[in-house]
């Protein structure tokens, strides 16, 4: 066999060096992504955390690099911020509970009742709205909740009226937006349930209700927790939906956004609240083994 043309030689030599040295391969593979994630991302987060310890000049609104913890004590002690944090937490919990309650029967129908052909179609039907713009969906609900809007028109004959823009609207819209994130993990949890477990339960004389309580629910609970990671964290950090349908409702997201331009240190301290809550929730959920089913 003729020797390879000279241009190909350095390439082949590089290839053989890479082939022999797995450590070098790994280092090259990791270099660029880690440079990006550690420098660009963790670096930014560090800058943000650091600026939470700075102060703002009361007159010029300039950031002064004076080390202090006043921002954190403001966030922790001011009743306004405590109320905002509790409200945000309440919204996130309500959204998660609503989504779990709505998603479960739908996922159950998809996984256990529908025929295989229909099942495929239903999965696509649940998934498609995820691709429709987030903003457009929130906006559609703004039209629905508006005064004299669709909801008023719908429930008006019953003597009711739309709750208008506010906390209720925020909960409804967030639950709507994140519903597919709950349905999909619960669906795959239910689908992976071995049929013979259910048969065994029936053979031992359990009614459908008893099988559901004692076999299905304990097995699928981790999937519900997996879905709740999405619904809970996404609700905690949201601020655009709140701006669109929340009226004057203040949540952590809007409080952070409001402070960014005039008081970045306070905004930075405030943003530690959802981060701590989300990381705490992730750690708590990890103990149930739910994160493996993501």
């Amino acid at each position: 066999m003729a020797p390879p043309p000279t241009a190909a030689r350095p390439l082949r030599r590089a290839a053989s060096v890479l082939h022999r040295r797995a450590g070098l391969r790994l280092a090259l593979l990791l270099s660029a992504p880690m440079a990006w994630l550690v420098l660009a991302y963790l670096g930014s987060l560090a800058v943000l955390l650091l600026s939470a310890f700075w102060a703002v000049d009361d007159f010029t609104y300039d950031v002064e690099r004076v080390w202090n913890t006043a921002n954190f004590s403001t966030v922790l002690t001011e009743p306004v911020y405590r109320a905002i944090a509790l409200r945000t937490l309440g919204i996130a919990v309500a959204v998660t509970v609503i989504d779990a309650v709505v998603a479960f029967p739908m996922a159950f129908y998809m996984a256990r009742v529908a025929r295989p052909r229909t099942r495929k179609l239903l999965v696509v039907a649940v998934l498609t709205p995820l691709w429709a713009s987030y903003l457009v969906k929130a906006y559609a609900w703004r039209v629905i909740f508006s005064q004299g809007g669709v909801l008023d028109w719908l429930v008006g004959p019953l003597g009711l009226s739309s709750p208008g823009y506010g906390t209720t609207a925020v909960i409804v819209v967030l639950a709507y937006l994140w519903l597919p994130y709950m349905i999909l993990p619960v669906y795959s949890g239910l689908e992976n349930l071995p049929a013979n477990l259910l048969d065994a339960s029936a053979d031992l004389g359990a009614s459908a209700g008893r099988t559901f309580r004692s076999v299905v629910l304990p097995q699928v609970l981790p999937s519900v927790f997996a879905g709740s990671v999405f619904t809970f964290s996404l609700s905690l950090g949201d601020y655009v939906t709140v701006r669109i349908v929340g009226g004057k409702t203040q949540v952590l997201g809007t409080a952070i956004a409001d402070n960014v331009t005039l008081n970045l240190p306070l905004a930075a301290a405030l943003s530690c609240v959802p981060v701590v809550l989300i990381v705490g929730y992730l750690l708590a959920v990890r103990r149930t083994g739910a994160l493996e089913s993501l």
Partner: peptide
Amino acid sequence: TVSFLVILPIALPGIVTGIALNAAFRTV
């Protein structure tokens, strides 16, 4: 840790990622 680091930007709220990058871009 690498897997965790990759997931972190989407797990944290967009506004936290947003203002962190904003602050970093401005200073760097």
